[in-house]
Structure formats: C-alpha cells, structure tokens
Nucleic acid binder design. Structure first.
Lengths: 220, 220
DNA sequence: ACTCAACTTGACCATACGGTCAGAACAAGA
DNA sequence: TCTTGTTCTGACCGTATGGTCAAGTTGAGT
C-alpha cells in the first residue's frame, strides 16, 4: 500500500544529514504540509490519518508518534495558517495612507491566496463549522487585530483621506474578496475554461480588485 | 436513543392528513432540511446518516428508504441550493441599469445569506473540495449564467453607465462579499461581541456593502 | 373484507477509522 | 563496545459508520 518500496532508506528518507532536532523539525514540517493538503481537500471529517501518513511518506503509527491525535495535528495546522495571516498584515500598519495601506494589504492577501490556497481552505472550513478549535483565537488575537486596524481606518477617515465607510465591513470585504480566490479557486478555474489563472490574468485580477475597492472607498 | 418516545404516532408524526404523495413530499422535505443543517455543520465527511435521521425524526433505515446513499442525499441538497441561487438572480436581468441591477442583486444575495446560511456553507464546502458532485453544473449552468451576466455588464459599460471593470472579477466580488456573511457568519458574530447582527446592523451592512461596490464601479 | 404496493423499523453486517502497543532499529554519549 | 533514550513500524483492537434485510404495518383501491 505504501508508495515506496526501497526498503533500505538510511534513516527516514528525509534530509540525509543534520542533527536530531533538525530531522525532527523536517519530519514535522512534512507532516504538517501533508496534513494541510489533506484537510483542505477532504475536510476534517473526511481526512484520514492514513492518507496524511501516506502523503508525508511514513507509516501511520509513526505519524501518531509525532502527533498524538488527529485533533492535535489539525490544531497545529490551523494555528500555523492564522500566524501566517497575521504576519502578512504588517503592511497595513507601515502605510502612511489608505491607498498604500489597503492596496498593499490586498496585494499581500492575494499573494497568500495564490501561494497558500490550502491554508485558506482549512481556515474557511474551520470557521464554517463554528470554529470548534480556534474559537479562543477569534475572541482574543483576531478581535484585537481587527479593532486595531479599525482604529487606523477611522483615523484615515477623520483625516479626510478616504470615504466614510464602516471599518468592519470594509475589512470583511477585503477578507472575503481576497480569500475567495483561494477558497473558490476551483470554481474560478472552471469558469476560466478549466485553466488556472495565468500570471497575466493574476496581475489583472489584483488590479481589478484593488481598483474597485479603492475607488469604492474614495481613494483613486 | 431516538428523541421521541410517544410510541403511537398515528402515522409518521408529520402532517396528520394529506395524500400519500403529499406525505412523501413532506418527509423528503424534512430530510433535506435536516441534511442541509448537518452537512453545513459537520461537512460531508463529518456528517452521519444517524445524525440526519435523528434531526429529521425518523429511523436511519427509513432514511435510506428515501435516499439510497449518503452521496445521493448530499447531491440533492447541493442541487437545491444551486437552484435557489439561480432563481434569486432574476433581479439582475430585469434591471435597467447597474445601480438598480447590481444593487438589487446584492440585496437578494445578502438576504439569502441571512435566511439560508447553511445552504451557502454546503455550497462553499462542495466547491472547496473540488466540486466532486456538481462539477457538471459549474461547467454548464453556472458558466452560461456567468457569461450572460458578463454580457449585460459589458453593455452597461459600453453605454457609459458604469466604470470599465472586468465583469468576471466584479461578479466574483459580489459572490465573495455576500456569501461571506453566511460562510463566515460565526467569525463575524464573534467579532460583533458574540451576538448575531441585529436587524439594524444588518441594514447597515447591506448599505455599506452596496455603497463600497457601487461607488467602486462608478455608480453613485 | 381483501389485496397489494408503499412505507416503517430493529437488528444486523462488513468495513474503515483513530488509536495502541510491544518490540526492533538506530544514534549519540560514556 | 556498551548503554540509554529516541525514533520507527507491523500487527492489532474497539468503535462508529454506511448500508442491508426480512419482517412487519399501513392505507388506498376494489
């Protein structure tokens, strides 16, 4: 059933040399990557530890050595995605005005949607199911982050740099629009003749999204 | 285990009178409604026929009498949602211009997001997993619908009634933004202090979304 | 009252899944 | 080389799930 049958890998087939701790990190990384893919494609309920193990290239029992339970593994995957998004939002703060800040934020989130679609899908799935494992993050980190950005937007509005729109709904629109290209990527690809968006199309997409949004908030 | 124990329902507990065919329709309706809820909350893989049966108020074996397999039941649920959306899009065609047409479309989709959040979630889940059961709909009905609306939008642009934006990306933005309030309703609720949006907040939301989008396409 | 197809249901089955375990293989320090 | 903790793995287990089945019950048509 396993996809390799060399039968004589020097150790575990990953990174021939390196310290013990490094090998462990590499294995965990491979598992997390495989898990993200499987969870994204099948959902939490549809994912199986066997499938994740196969994709990571190790026996199921070994997978359980690194991650005791399916829930624990899933939690780590979701936490990773959340962290990635938070880090990518720094562009927001460093901007001097809405055109630059929101434009750069759209660019950043769109890039993540293209390079990390599976993460976005896992997050969407988690939230759609009522956020059973990351509810605490929503109530603390995400809420703080959102309020912080809302304050910045309100300042821009007060300074007359953009139209008077509700900051929360603007943020929701940014999330919805950018993540849509990851979560509904399959639908978009189908409507694009069955082919993924080309590099040119992708640039046009970002420009189009930014154009509508920035014009929509009176910046342009 | 079953939640009722009356033990003496005259027939099946649903609609005491009515023809045979009508009773069948009522039972199927109850099953489909329960299934939509369970599929939305747990995903296809996490949903169980037992849970759906319990929620519909009949034994699992009886559920299999009406829907042979889990897949068949799921397919019917997804088809229903798709139909609902298509019907709600009529407002688009009847409009004389973009302000009215797109504004009304946003209103319609937002209302569906509020009244039918589970349907939206099931659809999102299906598409995110690669549309294993409704791929044909995407390639035929949805593609035709999309091209038709894109043509209308292009006409509006040609007539100088709105800004020159890519019709497809505009449609994606409409879908993303409106469905976000259903699919990510839990996240929005959490960021709203744990309370669902009130009627007033809901009206403000619709106005805000329409405001940004319509201004974004040069109509306002 | 009788018939027969439509419907209902508890009990049952095979399978697949998450998780366990005992022991083998390995590597690093003494 | 020996020891010891870490890592690896096949075999195994209990449970839950989708689905089946045979034996009922019901009710409309005659």
């Amino acid at each position: 059933m396993r996809d390799d049958e060399s039968g004589k890998r020097s150790k575990n087939g990953r990174s021939g040399s390196g310290s013990r701790a490094e090998a462990r990190r590499a294995t965990e990384e491979a598992i997390l990557k495989a898990a993200e893919t499987v969870f994204a494609e099948a959902g939490f309920g549809g994912a199986t530890m066997q499938l994740i193990a196969d994709m990571a290239g190790l026996p199921k029992a070994n997978l359980h050595y690194y991650f005791a339970t399916k829930e624990a593994l899933y939690r780590r995957v979701v936490e990773r995605i959340f962290t990635t998004w938070l880090e990518a939002a720094d562009v927001f703060d460093e901007a001097v005005g809405p055109a630059e800040g929101i434009g750069a934020y759209i660019d950043a989130k769109m890039e993540i949607s293209r390079s990390h679609p599976n993460g976005s899908k896992v997050w969407a799935s988690e939230v759609m199911h009522g956020a059973p494992v990351i509810q605490d993050y929503l109530e603390t980190t995400l809420r703080d982050w959102t309020e912080g950005r809302a304050k910045i937007i309100r300042r821009w509005i007060a300074q007359g740099q953009m139209a008077d729109v509700d900051p929360h709904h603007l943020l929701y629109m940014l999330w919805a629009t950018t993540q849509h290209y990851a979560d509904f990527g399959h639908q978009i690809e189908t409507l694009n003749g069955g082919k993924p968006l080309s590099d040119e199309q992708w640039e046009a997409t970002k420009a189009s999204v930014k154009g509508i949004v920035l014009r929509g908030i009176g910046v342009l």
